[in-house]
Design a protein around this nucleic acid. Structure first.
Lengths: 226, 226
DNA sequence: TGTTCTATAGAACATTTGTTATAGGAGGCA
DNA sequence: TGCCTCCTATAACAAATGTTCTATAGAACA
């Protein structure tokens, strides 16, 4: 469905990021520099292809007139920083993590991100999070956050258990109640010293490979706040 | 608080509109043409002032690098097309209404408009709409629409009465129920042939001039959909 | 082998465009 | 009147930039 060569995808991502950072579109030569292309004509070539395929729009002879097509404007590209699994601490983004070009990126509907910043995604490995209604292979949308409100779905590192878990957090007197998203399951109680909030879970994306065609569907009802 | 000369305001509005229409920023010479300025240096002069005052941002030597400051990005400028009063049909925007520079424009928070198109504002004259919780002097945000759903707050022209009214509309078998926003008031029933939906009411803005300073506050709880 | 399509390079040209130097005018103010 | 500030106007320069021409390389294919 995408049919985007890696180079074109990189150009598209670069444009998105450039516009996001600078507030205006890159020139052809900005694309050259930003995407490791050696000639402006090559960039021109790919930009023309991208325009022909409807990913971008340009006005002839007008500098910096690249604009993302509406289809692209409805999505936000977030980096997939790594995996999240029961026994491993989750990757927490550092400032330079964002600068380096990520091997993998993910496009999510704006509604899921809606203005929030410091968003990244993690791929779920294993079935340890079924109690949070999250399946193996799911993508978890995270927001970097250390202070979270009661009732929010957060990623928690349990120090003693050396384990990460996704739960709704409720601070109670002297203890912390961790409530699975699956209401049929019982809450877990932890000492406040034993938990380390790694971030806020703002969404889950599950790509279901069905018989017909792979569809991008978002799941998780009450998982998402806002 | 604004301290914007008419010319600067016009430039700012032009930039907003240009970006909205084209998807990229205007050049200095575009501003010249679009704002009836006779020289690029004049435009340059005003743009520099606007940048100094924080309304816009520019990168030196880079064409079309004008970007609206965050403060400006949070608001949308909508035209105030006229007044709305009990006994007068409301002005319905035609295609060229948008082209002509409106004498008056209004800046509303993006949350009120959020992606919607064909938005305009009307100033309320008189107290005929208190049943819709709308006061004399309020600004009503309208969306041009002929087909509206049940339960939406709409502006209705009553043909027999030669009167405009703001009500929630419910189509029932053989009649139309018009429900005032004020729930303490009784609904009105009309024949379908007698009503003409002029547009959707998407918000109300009431500027309360208090003792301290005029504050822009939006009111109308369940008046706004979304 | 020859052909075709895609992708890459380098270079040059013409336009678009930001910027600046210079000068004139309108209005307030002493 | 003189002075100042804000605004307008013309022209020209230099940089940024879109575009095009030509050439080359690799892969797929008949």
């Amino acid at each position: 469905m995408d049919a985007l060569s890696p180079k074109r995808k990189r150009i598209l991502d670069f444009i998105t990021s450039f516009v996001g950072k600078k507030g205006y579109a890159p020139s052809v030569r900005d694309v050259v520099k930003g995407c490791g292309i050696s000639s402006s004509s090559v960039a021109q070539y790919h930009l023309n292809v991208l325009e022909g395929e409807g990913y971008i729009h340009r006005d002839r002879e007008i500098p910096r007139s690249i604009s993302l097509s509406r289809r692209r404007q409805g999505v936000t590209t977030v980096p997939v920083l790594g995996i999240i699994a029961a026994g491993e601490p989750i990757p927490v983004p550092s400032s330079d993590t964002w600068v380096t070009v990520c091997e993998e990126s993910l496009e999510v509907p704006n509604e899921l991100v809606r203005g929030k910043e410091n968003i990244y995604a993690l791929r779920v490995k294993g079935n340890s999070m079924v109690d949070a209604l999250i399946d193996d292979g799911d993508l978890v949308l995270m927001q970097q956050a250390s202070n979270v409100d009661n009732g929010e779905m957060v990623a928690i590192w349990l120090k003693d258990e050396q384990e990460v878990t996704l739960k709704k957090i409720y601070r109670e007197s002297g203890r912390v109640r961790l409530q699975p998203a699956n209401r049929q399951m019982k809450p877990m109680y932890q000492r406040p010293e034993n938990i380390d909030v790694q971030g806020r879970v703002i969404g889950v994306i599950r790509k279901i490979e069905a018989g017909d065609q792979g569809e991008l569907s978002s799941a998780g009802g009450d998982i998402m706040n806002e």
